[in-house]
Write a protein that binds this DNA or RNA. Structure first.
Lengths: 152, 152
DNA sequence: CACCATCTAGTTGTGCACAATTGAATTGTG
DNA sequence: CACAATTCAATTGTGCACAACTAGATGGTG
């Protein structure tokens, strides 16, 4: 009778998912506010972070950094190109590949973006160690979930 | 020189957001696999959970439970109605409101859904206390982020 | 009682995530 | 070298999140 019932599990799992989902969307809300000045969405900001850090990269590599595929990246990069922040050029060495890099305008945006992270961290009300611990926990979770998704 | 630079903050915040985002999407992936048999997406499953737990509810209340607005719920509920799982009826007492409830088929689906949570919890490789602790942490985060989003 | 602010769903439009497919280029193997 | 398998980006289609707006119903106030 003390065995955990399906109902208990249901409540429990609902809450962890709700919590994760809610936190993710709450983050998104804060980013939306903070990034509005820069004219970027959160996923676009992530792409710019990757380009600022690594310079020119093929779409494939950008996708590996962000765990995104071309179905998401192609239209996103096209919007960034329309906004004048990145350039896409088919690679001469491997014609399958498309190299992406920030334009001058895209590089200039980095200066204004430098204040973003501080504002985000402040918004969490967590300190560095707390964030680190939470991140580690979430990464464990992701590894386990990814492994589980492959089985079924 | 020991003050945390903008670059450090950038790296840190990038990782917490990456981690949260990745975990959220990993959860989604597991749910996609597990819910495929039931013919539900994860958000649809959440709506059914609410209806199973609370019975008939106006769209507004469903949205409050899930933190979703009519822009998301209206088409989602329409899909569930097309699938024969819910019914929508404009309230007689308040014509602004639309009452949503599970059909018999929708209620029957609950039996098959009872096994879902156990599989999800198993996929996390976390035990009950770990999940509870993580959930509490995420809820704190959400509260802080929501509060911060209102300021700006 | 009349009118205005508010509330509720729904719609429209934008952007993201992801599955599935396509087409072209490349690589590996016989 | 030829050809089959693989790789990469793009496209198509579905579904969700959210902002902005519409239309209709309701309720409070002068």
């Amino acid at each position: 009778m003390s065995a955990t019932s399906a109902e208990d599990f249901l409540r429990l799992d609902q809450q962890i998912c709700f919590s994760l989902n809610a936190a993710s969307r709450a983050f998104n809300g804060v980013y939306r506010v903070v990034l509005k000045d820069l004219g970027l969405t959160y996923p676009q900001y992530l792409v710019m972070l990757v380009l600022w850090e690594h310079g020119q990269l093929p779409v494939k590599k950008v996708g590996e950094h962000l765990r995104l595929d071309s179905g998401t990246l192609s239209p996103l990069l096209k919007r960034l190109e329309t906004a004048g922040l990145v350039r896409r050029e088919r690679s001469a060495r491997d014609e399958r590949s498309v190299e992406v890099r920030a334009t001058e305008e895209g590089l200039a945006l980095r200066e204004r973006a430098l204040q973003v992270p501080r504002r985000i961290v402040a918004a969490t009300s967590f300190d560095v160690d707390e964030i680190r611990a939470l991140r580690a926990r979430l990464d464990e979770l992701t590894v386990a979930l990814d492994a589980a998704a492959l089985d079924a």
